Simulated assay, not measured.
Amino acid sequence: MKKHVVIFEARGGSDKSKYGYRRDTYPIIESLKARGWTAEVIFYSDENRGEIYRYTIDKADAYVSRINPGNLKDETGYFQMLRELVHQGVKGLPHPDVMINYGAKNVVERLKGTALVPVDVYCYYEYDELKNQFPTTLAKGERVLKQNRGSTGEGIWRVQLKDPKKYKDVAEIPEDAVLKLTEALDNHVEEKTLGEFIEFCYQYLEGYNGLILDMPFLPRIKEGEIRVLMLRDKAVSVVHKKPDESADAFSATLFSGATYRYDKPEQWQEMVDEVESSIPMLQARLGGYALPLLWTADFILDTDDKGKDVYVLGEINSSCVGFSTNLELSENIADEIMNLIEAESVINSRFPAFRI
């Protein structure tokens, strides 16, 4: 065993310190050093992919991927390299297929009908699907459309009818109906006809992993979104993210003016218990993969038909989860990295415990 970990990052982006790497990367390196291991940051680029691959094979037991999806123009080459590293025996934290299966917006659609997600959720992969079905779902009430790519609320739209009374009893909203559209990026409001908006959304369906998630708007988002930070199968922190008080605000990002409160898991015990107890179901529904090292599940409060509070899953993030407000978690993360690598070292790679 080499007792060395490579941490992949991308150059640039709003998630970096003045020294170029993520603020919560250095604590992981220091915590590993305190345990007799070493670690280093490598800034990935497609141009240097071959050299980075050879270096990692030679030096590292594992990699930790800390690249936000939006910080690479195209993830294809990066994911190809990660897959080959895993194939050659480097432990992937996480494996790229885990990032895709847990981090894509269609996770919510794949979990619909469970205790975490209502049945009124759809994914569109083709333009015709969006054009034919969205006017019907919009007739049920306000919706939220989410693109698969982007971050900080970009391409996440609250969709309202400007004159809902006009279409009160219709089964399908006509293309000339005027919409009020609020983007979660900064809570700005636009107006488009339904036909214009559907044409606009075509961009979200283009390219690799293009899709749109369609789910009901939950008014209790104004009470706040609840993010559970998971270290493998245990909740380690909860963030309560309350949108700005302005009338149209629904975004729970700091960039859009939301306020964050950081709580202990036991302050949200009922929800945490539900997440942790749902893990076997999550793994089964999402391909049987090993859990990501760090991942988050975002919930919005809703009310069921009996008047009881329920938590609805809005999305899962697993590609590059930060913990800059809980830097002490680096100790737990370092322990988990070491334990995973040491466990893998005694398993025959031809017959792994999990699919990957």
Results as ranks from 00 to 15, higher is better:
H4F: 11
V321G: 07
L82D: 04
A258M: 08
V121P: 00
G195Y: 08
G257W: 01
Y63D: 07
D24I: 12
G13I: 03
D97I: 12
I156M: 06
K105T: 01
I42F: 02
S318Q: 09
G153D: 06
G89N: 03
A184H: 12
E109L: 00
E51D: 00
Y44W: 13
F197R: 01
P135H: 01
H240N: 05
Q80P: 01
R66H: 01
L179T: 05
V5E: 03
T253N: 15
I100Q: 12
W157Y: 14
P174V: 04
F79T: 02
S251Q: 01
R261C: 09
K222Q: 07
Q269F: 15
A184P: 03
V41H: 02
E191T: 15
L213M: 06
A177K: 05
K112L: 06
E175S: 11
V272T: 13
V41W: 02
K162R: 14
V275Y: 02
E175N: 09
E206M: 05
V107I: 06
Q267M: 12
N317F: 12
E344A: 12
P96T: 09
P27C: 10
G36K: 11
Y122M: 00
I29G: 05
W37C: 08
K2N: 11
Y124E: 04
L282W: 04
S256E: 00
K73W: 12
S318D: 07
W157V: 09
M338H: 13
Y44S: 03
G153H: 03
E266A: 08
N187Y: 03
D273W: 02
E274M: 15
N209A: 08
G307W: 01
N187F: 04
A171N: 05
A247P: 03
A34I: 05
L82G: 01
V86W: 11
Q269I: 15
F8K: 07
S151T: 00
T182W: 09
K112T: 03
L211C: 05
V107L: 12
D74G: 10
K166T: 13
I212T: 06
Y78H: 08
R350N: 14
L340G: 13
T296G: 14
L145Q: 02
D128K: 09
M281F: 05
S278A: 15
I57M: 06
T325Y: 11
G288F: 13
Q133T: 13
T259D: 04
A252V: 06
I221K: 02
I333M: 11
Q283W: 08
K73T: 12
F8T: 03
